[in-house]
Write a protein that binds this DNA or RNA. Sequence first.
DNA 1: AGTGCGACCCGAACGC
DNA 2: TGCGTTCGGGTCGCAC
Length: 273
Amino acid sequence: MPELPEVETVKNTLKRLVLNKKIIDVDVWYTKIIEFPSSTEFIKKIKGQTINDIKRRGKWLVFELDDYFMLSHLRMEGKYFIKSAQDELNKHEHVVFKLDSGEELRYRDTRKFGRMLLIDKDELTDVKQIKELGLEPWDEALTSSYLLEKYKNKRLPIKTVILDQSIITGIGNIYADEILFLSRINPLKVTSKLTESDCANIIKYTKEVLEQAIELGGTTIRTYESSEGVHGRFQNNLLVHNHVGEKCPNCQNIIEKIVVGGRGTYYCKVCQK
DNA sequence: AGTGCGACCCGAACGC
DNA sequence: TGCGTTCGGGTCGCAC
């Protein structure tokens, strides 16, 4: 599933493939993907726009066009492919951007969970989806005191709160387990009870885990792949996620799987008190 | 405001 | 070519 490292990888790949190309038309085969404006308005406005840059904010891809930002969230299984117009349409290719190069940028999403928005250029920071995002992992403002302040009234388990995009943005279910394992924090620990040292560890290992994952091109579990069909290799480095019944790499205890806030959670109950 | 949970999707895995 | 059921994952919207 695309988390921050996968989105970063997709962004970098797409920049090599579509930068400075003009969108001459768009086909939308599943309109719910287009969250704002209506799909007909979306198509009308985006025609003739050139892709001048692609950035990332949290798990959002931000396509910088001439007059708009196009936001794209891959959610669970969204992927981009570059194909020729002659290639047969895959049943899961829901949005097709026709480029002036003759190629097509196709958005494929088996689960249909992904979303796109087209926003006027001066309104990007007013959009709820962007405005409510918390700090990027490498933001200098991400300090232990920032986390302590955000955490002090939270009675939810830390596993749930580490997934809250309005505090730190970019962490998903896979890396959450890895970060908590390396930080030696029990995923069920009530967030308001975290110490300054816990917070420092979360910050340290968030950066470490995400940086390593970006270097390896993201994680592949089940069906995720980046835009050229290249599979990430980080899955080989996961320490606890998806390792139920296997030995903890640290203490040899058996890794357990529990459900926290409705999310499958893998941890070592010996290492993570 | 903080919290809990169903809805959105559909392919894979599972149970029988 | 077995078929019906369950599960998962990010985010939102609604109820409390």
